[in-house]
Design a protein around this nucleic acid. Sequence first.
DNA 1: GCAGTGCAAACAGGCTCCAG
DNA 2: CTGGAGCCTGTTTGCACTGC
Length: 211
Amino acid sequence: MPSVDHKQLKATKEKFLVEIQPSLLKETALQLGIIMVEPEFALLPYKHPQIHKWTSFIREFLMINRDSNSMSNQLFLENSLSQIAIFMLQYGSGSHQNQFPKIISKQNINRVIEALKDSYQDNWTLDQMSLVAGMSKYQFAHLFKEEIGLSPYSWLQLYRLLKSQEQLIQSEQSILTIALGNGFSSVSTYNQLFKRIYNKTPTEFRFMHRP
DNA sequence: GCAGTGCAAACAGGCTCCAG
DNA sequence: CTGGAGCCTGTTTGCACTGC
């Protein structure tokens, strides 16, 4: 059951909700040797094809077997949750990584993503991105959102944030230096985005994730 | 009928300034 | 360093249009 009551979290005929206990995620992360502290995921909606496929499979399995004995379904679900935890740690963007998870997408979208990764510190606009993709900015914005589940600008901001995390944890540079060095035009913008995505300030994040 | 394209309104979020 | 307020710009997205 969802821990918060929200319209978008309600299960319907078209969608269902999977809630993973943080302890399971932490345990999985430890077993994978990813990190020593509890992983924090970016608080924004995006989709990854592998996670999507797997959750669809679980849903299908449960639909087909809804009349069979509940123990087999329960066992299936318990095992599936561990696998989803692995997927989340591997493909979900958050405090445990500094790269946006790899997504196999259409060639022109991949081209833009690679260009953004190469120069994420630059001041990109939608027009420039669409130029790289070789299509109109409206067409590009629609396609990008459809493929990645995030709008182009949101993707870029999230990528900048992921890159900045490493410096927060491993260096003594000031928040201002890190913000400007990662393509944010002001420390205020950086702080606001950080708070929105992780629900904490960069300083708090730095403190919590220091080894 | 459908896919591709572009417009325009709504909205998110970036910027500046300032105070604590 | 952080966060709030107010303003403004650029992004997002629903929808209409066009051509096949």
